[in-house]
Structure formats: structure tokens, C-alpha cells
Design a protein around this nucleic acid. Structure first.
Lengths: 348, 348
DNA sequence: CTGAAAGCGCTTACAG
DNA sequence: CTGAAAGCGCTTACAG
């Protein structure tokens, strides 16, 4: 692989001049420029980003540590992060924590060792010392989706409170009174916030949220299945299960199906996070949709602002309820239409 | 951020000794070693991977360029690649080509500039000059899933031929005679191979594959929807649509649903690539499952073999048919059971 | 076992 | 406008 020296030799100039041409430095003669460009072309020269990074102390790379790539919500988030980063001239390296704190730390460490310019994290747990130290040490950092309290790091996330209230209103209107939730890990903000929003909304309707109706999940499908089985084993099972993410909803569907029961006839189901597949499940799943692409974009912009010396801004975007058929038909549309209408209602 | 010099100063040794300790070089006195280790600890020193890479000419990083991250098949592939790479001491940088050749080239170029040790590619198109040049120039490379003919690069992929034959046998047994396929881009191997395998299998049953029954898709959902609409507009629409990947099957489901039609009553559906969601769609979708994790693992092993000077091996693994309800009930199980049995049959 | 020194491929004041 | 030279943070023969 040819280096800048080879180009300089071929063009009959110094490496400094080659470097200037490559970096669009203004003070290069037209003649020198064209000779360098010709040499670059002839040799198929490509600058060594490693050497450039060592010298300039910037990698033009962002690290993104997400909780679980197999979760379509995070996949979409990752994609939107990459798109926006590319638009701003950055690459992104993704680390998949798989909801495991030690794997999260592994990726944070590796990314730091590679001297990424900034870090986007959706923290799996309360707060690893490694991440906190990095933040304190001045590594540009932004939290997406989930965050850690008490750390001076901008947060880009969706606020699901209003949508959870809309969901509970919807469920209440359908006559449901025994509502259960499959929560995420209490150590994550999204794990605890969604339960709190749910409890608060239930309170407005005078409905309780007994401990037996709070399933402890870990945001992965299996835990949704187990929590649902436990609900179904109760002397008085809930009428509705609200899964705090889409994968646990998938597990819940599995559990219901394995018992030979039907959604929504035997038990209703709703999920946090909307994904394309929810339109095609049996039945289509009522879900709370996050503005995922916007979150990714905003997170990158905040991080790049921070990296490039502009004040970064925290951003909170609203989620919205998408009603489908998994919680039952509204009274007005009792008889299922022969032609399934797209019956999809959105509320802010 | 402290450097090796700071550690050397703090430990009272030269940077060479620090480097030796860090790299587990045997010839270091126990005393020097412990002083260095103490200094490393005290300073919170972490080696700069950029500098190390420049010096050693290896990044211990693999590049993975996949066609579409949002496709669950590729997401799972990417995850398995990362896992195996991590186990072997490598990191991976993922580039999402989004089925766009120019984006694919962008990522290949960026990855090459970063001097990744090797490249794993699932080529979006016939063969970009950039990629071919890189292969010729000796960049360690392995193709996964899709490949390019006439290039001396190992290929790790699944052979779906037997499973496609099993699918056609299944469809024929259910009484279907008019079978259509939504193909992927002809420029990709998986795009053309799946059509060929399908045509060949149909031939064994004396069934034709008229041009009108070959929809041209691009492996993304929208194209599956459009192709299906065209099928449904035919004077004699097919009885079965076989989508050559899971996203186009999703689009097909959309199209059928939008017309107020039902799967499998009005039209049957099968897909290449099995994904967890197919169990929960309405109805569950009959699909051809690839050994995705094994493919990822094998691809990484082949690439690392190549990088580390061992002869890499091409690997072909069999796909298998997973029968669900989207093509109709077998005659023996005419009456749908009240309790939906997991009726899931596997054939090699 | 240890250190001084060269060198990986760049960029960038500095001097001309 | 141009080039010689220093230096980014490491690793590794080489000499002792």
C-alpha cells in the first residue's frame, strides 16, 4: 500500500505539499496540485486514517454502545445514528452490550482505547465506574434512550408519560380494570420510568397496581414470556399485559399462545416501542411509538456539538400511542369487519 | 490522557520497559513489572490503540459490510460475527450498505482507510471495482451470504436448494399449482440462485414458472408489496407467493392485507429467511431458515485464518424448511384445532 | 533484564 | 507557495 512518501516522490514534491493538497490547504500552486492529484490517481493512494488520527488527535469516529442490537428499536436507532453521523463526516462504531453490564464496559473500554471522538450510550445499568470516569475525564458523551442520573451528560430521549396515559385511557374505555405491566430492569431509567408512568395513569382512574401485577423483565423476549406465565398462573390473572418493550411483548405473545389462549379475547396486550412487525402479528399489537429516527439524529447532533466545542443540548421528544387490535375492539366497532380496516389511531 | 511516557516516568523505567510489561514480554524483572503495573493503575493509563496500530500495522479490527441492518437476518448475522470476532480478540466495524452500491463502496473505502485487518462482505451488487481491487491487492476478504463470481475470495453461505425443493413439495402436496416468486436483484447471487432453485423444483413437478410469476424485488419490504400487487392484478393470479427474503414477505403481507384478502385462504405465502416474528404474524409464515449464527462464526473464522496466515476455507451450510400455516393446512389437519398447536415441521 | 533510538504515516508551525 | 523537521504514542531490533 503506497504512502504519502510514494506520492511525493512520484509528483516531485515534498510530503508537506502532498498533505496540503489532500487537505485542501489553500496555499498550493495549481501546478503542484495537479501533479499530486495525478500521482495519487496513478498510485491508487489512499491516506492512512490511523496515522492521520495519531497526528491530529481526532478519529472522526463516534462510538455507540447500545443495549441490544437484536431489538428492532435499537437497530433502527443505530441506523439513524450512522446516517446522521455520516452526513456530518463521522463514522460510527457500534458496540452491542446485550443488556450485560460487563459487555457494556468491554465496549466502552475498547472504544476509548481507539480514541473515538465521542461516545453515545444507552446505559444498560445504573452506572459503571468506567463510564462515569470517562465522562468526568472529559470524554464527549451523550446518553440516548436511557440515562444515568447525577452525571453531567446531555440526554436525548423520548418521554412516554403522555402516551402511557393515553394507553391507560384506551384500556379503561375498553372496560379493562386489571392491568399488569412487565417492567424492564429497575436499574435502567426506561425500566423504572415506564412503571411509574403506568402506575400514575392507573391512579387517575382509581385503579391499583398490585405487586403481583408487576412482572420483572430484562427487556428480552424470554423474560416477557416468564412474566406472562406467572400472570396467567395467578388466581386472578390480569385482563391486560403491558410490556415495557417490544421484545418482552413478543415473549408475552409466545406465552399466551403456548397456553392455547388468544389475544385479546383471553388477555389483552400492549407494548412500548412500535415496530413494523406489530402490524402483522396475530393480532396487530397496540403500541407506544417512539420517534426513533429523530432521537438518533438529535443524539448525534448533540454529541458532535459537544465534540466541536458548541454547547450540546438535551432533547426530549414525545412518544405517541398507536392503537391496534390487541387490547380489544372499541364498543362502536363490535363486529369485526370482514375487510380489516387499518384502524390505526394516533395520539400525541 | 496519560501516555506511556507518563507511566515510564512514574515507574522510573524507560518506555521500552513499560511497553514490554504491557505486552507480556518475558524479559522484564519482577520488580520493574510491579512498578509499571502500579504506575498504570495509579494513572489510569490505557494504551492508545491508534498509535499501536500505526506501529504494528495491525488494527485487530474486522470490517463487516452488510446489505441492510434493518433486515433481521443481517442483524443476527452481524451479531454473531461480532461475538466470534470478540472471542478471537478482534473488534468489528459494521457498514450498512442499505442495498445501495455507492453506499457499499463508501463503507469499503472508509474501512480500508482505517486499515482494518480484514473485510467481510455481503456484496450488494455484481462487483464494484473498488472491492475487486482490494481483493486483488491482497486485502484479506471473505464473502458471506452473497458472493461475487470469478474472484478468488472464500465464500461462507447457506445452500437453500434442498430447502426450496422441500418447500415446493410441500406446496404441491397442498394442491397449489400456480406458484410465483418475488426475486431479489439479479445482480446478487442470492437474488438469482433462489429463483433458479425454485424454477428447478417446479420443473420436477412439471410446473411452469411464467415470467408474469417472477416479481422483481430488491430485498426490501416495499418491493415485495409492489410485486405482490402486480401478482394480484393478474387475470390469473398465483395461488402462492414465495418471497426471496423476509422483508419482501412483510411487504407481501401488507399488500394482501390492504386488498382485504387473507393468507392463506386467498393466497399463500412463504419466505426465504426465518425470523422470530414469523411465529407471530397472522398467519405464522412458512419459511426457509438459514443457520445464521453458524454462518457468522464460520465467516469470521475463515477471515481470521486468512489474516493470520492459515489457509481459509469456503463453507456451505444447508438451509431447512420450517412449515407453518401461511400456505394452508395439510389435508390431514383440515379442521383448525381450537388450540393452535405449534405445528412446526422441520426438514433438512 | 534494560534503555536509547529508529520509525510507522501523517500534519503543521516555522523559515524561507 | 514550498520544504525540512518535529512530533503524535507506540513497538522492537540492537547493543549492552
Amino acid at each position: 500500500m503506497s504512502s504519502i512518501k510514494d506520492v511525493a516522490a512520484a509528483a516531485g514534491v515534498s510530503v508537506a505539499t502532498v498533505s496540503r493538497v489532500l487537505n485542501d490547504h489553500p496555499s498550493v500552486s495549481a501546478d503542484a496540485r495537479s501533479r499530486v492529484l495525478a500521482a495519487v490517481e496513478a498510485l491508487g493512494y489512499r491516506p492512512n486514517a490511523v496515522a492521520r488520527s495519531l497526528r491530529t488527535d481526532q478519529t472522526r469516529t463516534l462510538g455507540l454502545v447500545i443495549s441490544d442490537v437484536l431489538n428492532p428499536y435499537f437497530t433502527l436507532l443505530a441506523r439513524s445514528v450512522e446516517e446522521e453521523a455520516r452526513a456530518l463526516g463521522y463514522s460510527v462504531i457500534i458496540g452491542n452490550a446485550d443488556e450485560r453490564p460487563e459487555l457494556q464496559d468491554h465496549h466502552v473500554r475498547t472504544l476509548l482505547d481507539r480514541r473515538i471522538d465521542g461516545l453515545l450510550v444507552s446505559p444498560t445499568c445504573g452506572g459503571s465506574p468506567l463510564m462515569l470516569d470517562a465522562a468526568k475525564a472529559g470524554t464527549p458523551m451523550v446518553f440516548v434512550d436511557r440515562w444515568i442520573a447525577g452525571v453531567d451528560v446531555p440526554v436525548v430521549r423520548a418521554d412516554g408519560r403522555a402516551a402511557v396515559h393515553a394507553l391507560v385511557a384506551h384500556l379503561h374505555a375498553l372496560g379493562h380494570r386489571r392491568l399488569a405491566i412487565i417492567a424492564g430492569p429497575a436499574a435502567t431509567t426506561t425500566g423504572s420510568e415506564r412503571v411509574e408512568a403506568f402506575r400514575e395513569a392507573l391512579g387517575e382512574y382509581g385503579l391499583p397496581l398490585p405487586d403481583a401485577y408487576i412482572g420483572q423483565g430484562d427487556f428480552q423476549a424470554d423474560s416477557g414470556r416468564r412474566a406472562t406465565e406467572r400472570f396467567l398462573d395467578l388466581a386472578e390473572p390480569p385482563e391486560v399485559v403491558f410490556a415495557a418493550d417490544n421484545l418482552m411483548a413478543l415473549g408475552a405473545l409466545d406465552a399466551v399462545r403456548d397456553r392455547g389462549l388468544r389475544v385479546p379475547d383471553d388477555i389483552a396486550l400492549a407494548a412500548f416501542d412500535d415496530i413494523p412487525w406489530f402490524v402483522h402479528t396475530d393480532p396487530p399489537v397496540t403500541a407506544i411509538a417512539q420517534p426513533t429516527r429523530e432521537l438518533g439524529r438529535a443524539a448525534v447532533r448533540a454529541l458532535v456539538d459537544r465534540i466541536e466545542g458548541r454547547p450540546p443540548e438535551s432533547v426530549t421528544l414525545p412518544a405517541r400511542l398507536v392503537v391496534r387490535r390487541s387490547c380489544g375492539e372499541p364498543a362502536s366497532a363490535q363486529a369485526p369487519a370482514a375487510q380489516p380496516s387499518p384502524m390505526q389511531r394516533s395520539m400525541p
